[in-house]
């Protein structure tokens, strides 16, 4: 009984430390995508650990906490993926340290192909 309480408290503390590190990452990282990276990972594991700690202190809430953990494990990465996608869609710039951007290259290629196709159609008529 006592041991469960202490373990739960320690897990909750570790979870809060991870969440704090995630917040620090959001502050320190240079651009949107890196911020989303640090934010998502830290908050997912941090929330999971905190919830598990609470579940150890109150064993009766186990079921609800399991559902919450599954819910967070699905929704958190999906929402960060959608945010990153939208950010790239409206051309939020990457940081100057960036090495490569294949997605933009593929989009430019696609656009060029579409333009070529249009011109060919014009020539046909």
């Amino acid at each position: 009984m006592k041991i469960l309480d202490i373990t739960g408290a320690i897990l909750t503390l570790i979870g809060s430390i991870f969440i704090f590190l995630g917040a620090l990452g959001v502050l320190r990282m240079p651009d949107v995508y890196n911020r989303i990276q640090t934010g998502t990972k830290a908050s997912t594991l941090g929330t999971m650990l905190t919830l598990t700690g609470i579940g150890m202190i109150h064993p009766g809430w186990f079921g609800k906490i399991a559902i919450l953990i599954i819910f967070i494990a699905i929704t958190n990465p999906v929402s960060s993926h959608v945010l990153a996608r939208a950010a790239h869609f409206i051309n939020i710039p990457l940081t100057s340290k960036t090495v490569v951007d294949k997605l933009r290259e593929s989009k430019i290629e696609e656009m060029e192909n579409a333009l070529k196709l249009e011109e060919e159609q014009k020539n046909d008529f």
């Binding site: 819910f71 929704t75 999906v78 993926h81 959608v82 869609f89």
Partner: peptide, 18 residues
């Protein structure tokens, strides 16, 4: 309207009933 990503659609199908 911009099409939403495939991942979002699948996730909505899983999460809606829940």
């Amino acid at each position: 309207l911009r099409f939403s990503s495939e991942i979002m659609i699948t996730a909505s199908k899983i999460l809606m009933p829940i």
